[in-house]
Design a protein around this nucleic acid. Structure first.
Lengths: 341, 341
DNA sequence: CTGAAAGCGCTTACAG
DNA sequence: CTGAAAGCGCTTACAG
């Protein structure tokens, strides 16, 4: 069952592989190759189940029809769903996707980008970890097309697709305030990452706008790679404050949110009676949880579609003056039982 | 910023690319190339930041160091986590992974396999959809190494890594019986798929072993691509049975389970008081749900490790008498509040 | 209308 | 110890 190559077809038909290649690539008419021969070539190709070797094609044309996707962790539902959307959109344009989980480590992302850059992919969609500025700059210098998602580096001009984190976070916090919460905590992580910083800023802005004090004691910034014990500690501290205890928490990621809700359950704190909860990212878990959890949902399908489209444009646009796109999408605030009276 | 090739190094040093290739592939000593030259080559390679073009290498050697992963849906947490484990294990052996979501459609899997088979991957890890027997047979005929996961086709001899679905399901059902449940329903899907059929059989076996009647009215088999309304309908039927109502449900997938739990909530049925719940696959959602949900957890890390190892073995073993491996792993039963009195 | 030839960037017998 | 050459399977100027 050896695979059939262009040559096999050419030999059997007694023509050159040039001709076969031309016909099979739909350039038969363009080169005015006789209908008769075209038909024969196509028939034999079908009969021998010919499939062009993409690797050889890639070497020759410099195109692989593959996109490199670098995200934090494909097992994280947020990235899993986003990955699916990207895969779907890419497939509809004839592209495949190679995925790499960086675990938010710049070192990993660096290796993965370098690896895939060796002729393996035509471009990248990247959720860049903290500290990967240099890598992204190099990517840019090397003229490899890419688009950043979820976050970006303001000092590096590049394509990117993100959501309005500040606004989203502000909206979530305002909602808690409107529902009578006064001592609202924020548990976040990955400081220095733009999206996270913006979410924290949005929280602060909402408080300030409502003439509430921004109490630094109510802000817990978890270490980079956080575990449930870190979340537990943060919540214990927040709920054992001497004066008035907290009455709400805004979680800036669903990973922290899931852990946080587990902790609240373990501590026998009632949601929303004791502590109201709003979390970034909408999960299945939030829908079936009792109480259901109010969430700030990101438009995953749109992020996927936009990022692929922009990338394709950058990959195919031969003109030197490539336009950079910065897309900022809106989130959707889904009010459930965890945050209302 | 053109990429540097073997030739660039060879020319600058005034040696042949043969030599450069040899040195850079660590065969310098084997071919007794002088230390001096070896050093020069390596230094220049580092200086020029030389990275071999994997595509060219692949064309020449017929190896891509890439694994094709075909699963139902990367956005499904089960496959997302499994994908992560496979990625991790593959990376530790220097392999990348290309993933494709088949949506459980044989047609999609067929196209994806054919696409990647054109020199793009060295082997496959596949969770084969219903009706993809022919495709798998062809894959086998073409001598492409592959391993099936999650399910397999008994009539096709192949590598596979699965769990003991019958036993797991039996165990889950027994647990419900031990906790005093008598009218236990089973909501399942994808009939004809071996893993699903085994799960249903395990449910029946547990009932029979406990001398309970297997009531076909209590078994709901959802259509292939199911939506929440299908689940809702099934549950409504189950809970409105004239005689004695059901007092427990075994969900054979977490996708059905999540929907089912939502429906129970919507119908104001109390878990576990009115209906006890056990579900296949352990999700974050099940941990934070109130009540927490008893789950049959699959050993994702083990599945990932085994499948990659077996595949690598099949890909590297040059001897003709390749051994086929069939690995059956144990699940872990995690008892939570949804199933106990 | 069709074919011979070059070349993408590598590796690997083969020769000396 | 080192190099010239062939070849992996394609595509694409170029020539006729």
């Amino acid at each position: 069952m050896k695979k059939t190559s262009l040559n096999d077809i050419a030999q059997q038909l007694g023509v050159s592989k040039t001709l076969v290649s031309l016909v099979l690539n739909g350039k038969g008419n363009e080169y005015r190759i006789s209908e008769d021969i075209q038909k024969k070539v196509k028939e034999l190709a079908r009969k021998l189940n010919y499939k062009p070797n993409q690797i050889a094609k890639g070497l020759r044309t410099g195109k692989t029809n593959t996109i490199g996707l670098i995200i934090a962790d494909i097992a994280n539902p947020f990235f899993g769903k986003l990955g699916r959307e990207i895969e779907r959109e890419a497939a509809s344009h004839g592209y495949r996707v190679m995925f790499c989980s960086s675990d938010e480590k710049a070192e990993n992302a660096k290796l993965q980008i370098e690896m895939l850059q060796q002729g393996q992919v035509d471009g990248f969609i990247i959720s860049p970890p903290n500290g990967s500025e240099e890598q992204i700059k190099q990517l840019k210098n090397s003229k490899t097309p890419f688009v950043l998602i979820d976050r970006y580096f303001p000092e590096i001009e590049s394509n990117c697709v993100v959501v309005d984190n500040l606004k989203a976070s502000c909206e979530g916090t305002e909602h808690l305030i409107k529902n009578g919460r006064k001592r609202i905590a924020c548990i976040t992580t990955n400081p220095g990452m733009l999206n996270m910083d913006n979410r924290l800023d949005g929280y602060k802005k909402a408080l300030t706008d409502a003439a509430l004090e921004v109490d630094e004691n109510l802000i817990k910034i978890l270490p980079f790679s956080h575990e449930i014990k870190d979340v537990m500690e943060a919540i214990k501290e927040l709920t054992s404050l001497d004066e008035n205890k907290i009455d709400a928490i805004l979680f800036t990621t669903s990973k922290v949110g899931v852990m946080g809700i587990q902790c609240l359950h373990l501590l026998d704190l009632k949601i929303p009676e004791d502590v109201a909860v709003v979390s970034f990212d909408d999960l299945d878990a939030y829908k079936i949880s009792r109480p259901s959890i109010t969430a700030i949902a990101q438009p995953l399908e749109e992020i996927g579609k936009h990022s692929v489209k922009i990338l394709l444009e950058a990959m195919t646009d031969k003109s030197k003056k490539k336009e950079l796109h910065k897309i900022v999408l809106e989130t959707k605030f889904v009010i459930r039982n965890s945050s209302i009276k």
